[in-house]
Design a protein around this nucleic acid. Structure first.
Lengths: 156, 156
DNA sequence: GTACCTGCAAATTTTTTGCGCGACA
DNA sequence: TGTCGCGCAAAAAATTTGCAGGTAC
């Protein structure tokens, strides 16, 4: 199991032309062993148990590399800054995973969402939100990532 | 129209025991007039056109007040810090709007999501994500803070 | 050997806080 | 008139960057 995972990590890195370093290996192990949806800070604390000299900057850089290459995902949309929605009517969003632009969807664009199973432990539902994640036209057409900031500004 | 909105704002404030100040009124107007999903910084830039002397701190404080009292929502979950998800299999999340905790849902917990309408402008879909927003057991049971009571009353 | 990776420190960005004056109710 | 809100400046939190030395391939 552990060997499998390590082998998998080496393969993942090779596919992406990433060097297999000790730090990356330990961070990868940490990410997959942590049950919740950890923050970089929490990953750092965990990784320090095995590499006390590691720096938080390395954890950030590695996580960003993993995100860019699809080794992990963001659990939240994480729009680095707060984004407000003044439309209190139920509606859904389309989010560009590259430039982080948010687009409203018509309420009818998404069919009714069925909740089948029981929710854990007395969770009190307020509302449901569907997010269609993908690439907006601009990002889909631009091969380089350098316009990201520009796109985000233009998108609003 | 404009009068209606202003009247509505006064009523919203009265329901929540908030003072109706000039700054709050202008920020409210700005939020509802901006089509996108603006960041506090963008709201600040807009509001400055009408109140050049306003401070960014006031914009933040006011936005937080509006969020706490349900006058606006967060367009992103905004977990102030990046949260990672090492599970690349399709699955959905339950998010506590108060403590921001993220819980995984079983893939079967949510029925298939139907997309009916056309998506805007060549958006390339990568994946769908359903978020069940609400209060986790701990937050639902802690009744502290008068603001929460207001929220709950208004939510039902 | 070369290009990429890491650690450190400093810089940026985003958001919050403390405090004294002023405005709303 | 008393309490709450505002502006200012400073602090805190989150993330990124530049650079010099080290490591993977």
């Amino acid at each position: 199991m552990r060997g499998e995972r390590l082998h998998g990590f080496r393969a993942l890195c090779r596919q992406r032309d990433l060097a297999v370093t000790h730090q990356r290996t330990i961070i990868y192990e940490a990410l997959f062993s942590m049950s919740g949806h950890p923050s970089p800070e929490q990953v750092y604390e965990r990784v320090r148990q095995q590499i006390p000299s590691i720096s938080l900057a390395t954890v950030y850089k590695t996580i960003n590399t993993f995100l860019e290459t699809g080794i992990v995902h963001e659990a939240s949309l994480h729009h680095g800054s707060l984004r407000l929605d003044s439309n209190l009517e139920p509606h859904h969003h389309m989010v560009c995973t590259k430039c982080k632009a948010i687009f409203d969807l018509e309420p009818e664009a998404i069919g009714p969402v069925l909740m089948k199973g029981a929710l854990p432990n007395g969770f009190r539902v307020q509302r449901l939100s569907v997010e269609v994640l993908g690439l907006c036209e601009r990002c889909a057409n631009s091969q380089n990532g350098s316009l990201q900031g520009v796109n985000q500004r233009l998108a609003s």
